[in-house]
Simulated scan of single mutants.
Amino acid sequence: MVRFPDGERPAPTLEDVARRAGVSRATVSRVVNGATLVAPDTVKSVQAAISDLDYRPNRAARALVTRRTGVVAVVVPEANERVFNDPFFPQAYHGALQGFGNSDVQVVLAIAQPGDPADRMLRYLDSGHVDGAIVLSHHGPALATALARMAIPVVFVGDPETPGLPFVDLDQVDASRQATELLIQRGHRRVATITGPLDMAAGRRRLQGFRDALTAAGLEPGPIEVGDFTQASGRAAAARILASGADFDAIFVANDLMATGALYTFGEAGLRVPDDVAVIGFDNAALAEQSSPGLTTMTNPADELCRVAAEMLIKTLAGVPVTSVILPSHPVLRGSV
């Protein structure tokens, strides 16, 4: 008689499940690997046997059969400090987890520093460690262009401006146009802006919407400064605008972190918001509600964007064609306008 130490028994095998369910080992394998050509009653029998025996598939063996790892990556080409300080990224990652919530897929976070050679991340994505990827906050075309040549399924959050790559994005131009129009409707005529990085489509398109709204109203743009979506850059850009001596009575800031930085600078300079200068941000982050005064802002639902991207990636992995998705934005009114 075989004795097992401390009363332990070996983990159940595929053969044990097959005997319990009264089917062949090959049938159990097909059920475990998600094959569709198995009778529903047989699937139920196999699943019951798996549950009864507490069977756990061998991931390594399963990967050899299915050529799948059961892992997808959320790729963020940003500095660690920004990933963990900007509320957009935790919300986006949560959205990816929600999108894969009804599957056995593990979602890992891969941070690639801006300026790193694209081939470093490409080697990781092409190494066989992941089945696909969601890419957030990309700078420039290099990564997207290289991914377009690879076989790995990928979905971008934000337009990669690369033909053939699916993405989900906000209507960036319309959202920033709405933000600027709101300031114009409130009677402001010298509207400044702090843009995001201009090597990102979001940064350029939010600037375009700002310009379009002013042009349609017959107004010249006020001071324009470039930030990098961090609070510190918002403070510095607002300080440069004040130091220039240029006249302005309102400002559209391309994200809420920079906008709260600008609020701080204006407060230090003795300006009252919104009496002396009206401020509108972008993202509807939690800090917009917590600032004083509360920050009027545009919605940019990071969790929804990444959840939709995850659903698109699931379809892509299943061989189902997908088309890119554009989501709308609307203003959230608070005390800064």
Rank of each mutant, 00 (worst) to 15 (best):
V72N: 06
G101H: 06
R211K: 02
G95P: 06
A148G: 08
L263H: 02
V277Q: 05
P166M: 02
S336H: 01
A217M: 00
V154E: 02
V105H: 04
D169S: 13
H138Y: 14
R123D: 15
H138M: 13
Q231R: 14
A269G: 09
S244V: 03
Y124S: 00
G158Y: 02
E289T: 08
T180R: 01
Q178A: 14
P153E: 04
R67H: 13
A309T: 04
S45D: 15
Q290F: 14
E311H: 12
Q106W: 03
A302F: 03
V74E: 00
V332M: 02
A48N: 13
L317W: 05
S24C: 10
G115Y: 09
V76N: 06
V74Q: 07
A39W: 09
D119E: 15
I50P: 06
L295E: 05
A278Q: 09
N284I: 02
I111M: 07
L53W: 10
V31K: 06
R123K: 15
N284K: 07
I314H: 13
Y264G: 12
I184L: 11
P10E: 02
P293I: 03
E78F: 05
Q91E: 14
V2F: 12
S324R: 01
I134N: 11
R82C: 05
A61F: 02
T195R: 01
D6I: 00
H139C: 01
E181T: 13
D52P: 00
L305P: 07
I194H: 00
P301M: 05
G245L: 05
R20H: 11
T145A: 15
A236T: 14
A35Q: 13
M121K: 07
G70F: 08
D16R: 10
R211W: 01
K315N: 11
D41S: 11
A286P: 12
I314P: 00
P5I: 13
R272V: 08
A60D: 08
P274V: 07
P331Q: 07
L287I: 14
T195D: 01
E225N: 04
V226L: 00
D16L: 08
P77F: 03
G209E: 04
A18S: 08
A202K: 02
G222H: 04
G261T: 01
A250R: 11
